[in-house]
Amino acid sequence: MKNKHAYQIANREALIGIGLVIFNFLWWFGFAYGLGKEDPAEYQFILGFPAWFFYSCIVGVLLMAFLVFIIVKLFFKDIPLNEEEGDH
């Protein structure tokens, strides 16, 4: 019974992981090739970096780190691994 519950938690967290990685990919790809495909002479620069690079690689990494931190803190459950050892 306990074990089944643990699998449910693991499943839910795996789904959250897939959602996060899809969001991560869209953010990364969208900014990089959306903003970056124009002529380099027309580029806008933010803090010295080309805008596509700034959003895709710098903001993207910070945002993902923040999201992972928040999601693990708020939605992930710690499960005791020694629980079922008493059974047998």
Binding site: I9, E13, G17, I79
Partner: peptide
């Protein structure tokens, strides 16, 4: 996220 917990169990 996908493998960690399941592997541990």
């Amino acid at each position: 996220m996908i493998l960690g917990k399941r592997f541990a169990i």
